[in-house]
Design a protein around this nucleic acid. Sequence first.
DNA 1: GGAACTCGCCAC
DNA 2: AAACGTGGCGAGTTCC
Length: 467
Amino acid sequence: MQVVPYKKEGYQLLHDGAICFSEMHQHGIHIDSKHLKGEYKRLKKEISNLSKLLESHEEVKIWKRKYKDNFSFESDVQLSDILFKELHYEPTKFTKIGNPSVDKEALSALHSSFTDRLLKLRFYSKIQNTYLKSLIEETCNGYIHPFLNLQTARTYRSSGSFPNVQNQPIRDAEAGEIIRKAFIPREGRLLVGVDYGGIEVKTAALYHQDPTMLGYLRNPEEADMHADFACLIFKLDDLDTNNSGENKLRKATKNSFTFPQFYGDYYKNNATVFWEWLQFSGKKIKRNEGPVIRNDITIGQHLINKGIKNFDQFVKHIKKVEHDMWNKRFPVYSKWKDKHYKEYLKNRFVTILSGFVCQGAMGKNDVINYPIQGLAFHCLLWSCIRLNKLLKKYKMKTKLIFQIHDEIVADVVPEELDDYLELLKQVMVEDLKTHWDFINVPLEIEVKKSEVDGNWFNMEKTMTYIN
DNA sequence: GGAACTCGCCAC
DNA sequence: AAACGTGGCGAGTTCC
């Protein structure tokens, strides 16, 4: 599989992008070394305490007896051997090549104090070895200078390395706090992050032009796609986003159904993920389970009232919603996917609107996803290049420092903050649409900022802007 | 002692 | 018929 620019425009984008990223690389990110070293020490102690506690478990005694000097808590091979061969636990999950899995899900399923403790150790070890350690190693005179690569991803997205700034923890609050507090602005400055809202859904629409989807994107005040799907899935007449339980259902729908469907997932997986989200304990739905919705009833009770009493019935229902999604709600999107894939089978390549060709052996999901994902990133790349040029042109001291696919982070001088925000609006929302006139949906940016001398963990939402 | 592999897990 | 897209990286393991 190969991706190449096929228009001069595509080539130019990468050329300018490489220069821009190399300047961001030179700018570097200010790092709180004291915080890093303190946390590293703290976790070392934490891990050592957990190790000691683990020694008392029967499983570890057997493990150590068998592996002697080679024993390691980090060895999945050893762990798998002890649990499933020595102790004869029943595996619930298997790896790609068919070995019993010892990932988080598999270990949690064993419900033992030993595996719970081991998972905790593994979590701290991940933070320590993957994040703290590499940040400490890469820090030079108080700064890291991470690489942002344009030559590696099949989709012509970017990647990051030494260290990879694109996968720093955030979803887990504890890990996020430990790591992101180390990312700080230059003295007397603040960090400002800006990201494009829903950019992949929008770039998809630029290809398929489904009228229903265009409607959602053009009327964000009146139409809410995720809420609409939540209503279908949970058999609700409408959804009240001010009700916290119902808002949870909307979020679960977005993460367990709508987005996975766009990436090419299917109803059976969706249903399984929903079960986790809703925290349903067994196959049979119980009256007292799940988030509480209006009139103080649980979603468990509500589903039972609507005739969905167990997992199998729920799966069948999701299958129906999936069918409705692609055949009734988004038939034009659906037809585009088929047509686009057939064209690939005929030509053996597909093009990206920003001026690239994807060619070679690809699966159906790849053929559909690459042009969408690539173009979404190219929107950000174009903005990065333009912003960087204008900051230099206006002789501003504010610097772009890194980028995460649909987000740009800058180190901002407080006196320049308002000007920088204006630049963001102008470039990311207005100028990009002029540059690529095929963008016929509104663009939206969301801006977060830290305090002056703050950090990347404590970011506060400051502005959204839609055109 | 390094290359290539597996597995697990972090991000968008 | 098939079944979630893109990456980086650490630790352990195996092979040469």
